[in-house]
Design a binder for these strands. Structure first.
Length: 276
DNA sequence: ACCCAGGCATTGG
DNA sequence: CCAATGCATGGG
């Protein structure tokens, strides 16, 4: 069986929790103890194994996607030693969630559409609405679905999206984004601020969405979604003494975690979403 | 029957 | 520049 070795520390259960917690994600589907995703035309299954994960089938293209899904690009060892020197809160978190590698979303368009579905509404609502969209516009392999393509959503009628639960506005955002002239390859080479600048000129993509794109798709170490409600709550719990901190206050607090803001944000959120 | 949830664009001061 | 408003659904 094709074994992909994973560097320690690594905790498969923590690292895949987000695929289970808020309901099924048909494009990144938890099924019978493993994670399923369509790569190219094939459905890939990933499951835990001693010394790493089993991946079936496995080739170079699939390995690159699996690396992202499992968060292998993060330098967890460096983060752990960093966290120990920052403050007791963070040190305790990295110990409690030791081996948690945040999942990186492999596809840029999927990342942005997913964020649009999650704007303003609860994650449970977002998952439900997105599942119905994937069923309608995506292509099913065996268990998992290939996420709907730009081409398909670009020609969708906004009414088809409102039929699966999108607001009229969000339906326009998705169709507009699918048809937008946006060079995703070029984004990968740009500095964080320039990536954000290119995203927020597109209708429906604001600061929050752009920050999560940096964090969850490009895996930029210093991405810090200061406007995220969950992160604001987590910062309040660990570093505040009263009401929910403002976005600006959260942004300022983020600077103390440089250059590991992305991992720090995920570990703070883990307390909200990964706790049993 | 409310009320809030991992925002955003739009409108009006 | 900042405040107020509507949005659609799921879960408490």
């Amino acid at each position: 069986m094709p074994l992909l070795p994973i560097p320690e520390p690594y905790d498969f259960a923590f690292s895949t929790e987000r695929f289970r917690r808020f309901g099924p994600d048909l494009a990144n589907l938890w099924h019978e103890g493993g994670l399923h995703r369509v790569v190219g035309r094939r459905e890939v299954r990933i499951e835990a194994a001693p010394g790493g994960v089993l991946v079936e089938p496995l080739d170079d293209e699939i390995a690159a996607v699996v690396r992202k899904l499992l968060g292998l690009d993060f330098d967890l060892a460096a983060f752990e030693s960093f966290a120990g020197g920052v403050d007791r809160n963070l040190a305790a978190l990295v110990e409690r969630f030791r081996g948690y590698r945040p999942a990186i979303s492999p596809d840029p368009f999927e990342t942005l559409v997913t964020s649009i579905t999650a704007q303003q509404v609860s994650l449970a609502s977002a998952f439900a609405i997105r599942s119905r969209m994937i069923e309608r516009f995506g292509r099913r392999a065996t268990h998992a679905y290939a996420f709907p393509t730009r081409g398909r959503l670009a020609v969708a009628d906004p009414g088809e999206l409102t039929a699966v639960g999108f607001s009229g506005r969000k339906a326009e955002y998705v169709v507009g984004l699918a048809g937008a002239d946006l060079d995703y390859e070029a984004l990968r080479l740009l500095p964080d601020e320039e990536v954000k600048a290119r995203l927020v000129v597109i209708r429906g993509l604001g600061d929050w969405t752009a920050d999560w794109f940096l964090a969850r798709h490009l895996a930029r170490p210093q991405a810090w979604p200061a406007g995220d409600l969950g992160l604001r709550k987590a910062v309040a719990a660990f570093y505040g003494d009263g009401p929910l901190p403002s976005i600006e206050e959260v942004r300022v607090i983020g600077t103390r975690f440089a250059p590991f803001q992305n991992l720090t944000a995920h570990y703070l959120l883990a307390d909200l979403y990964l706790s049993t």
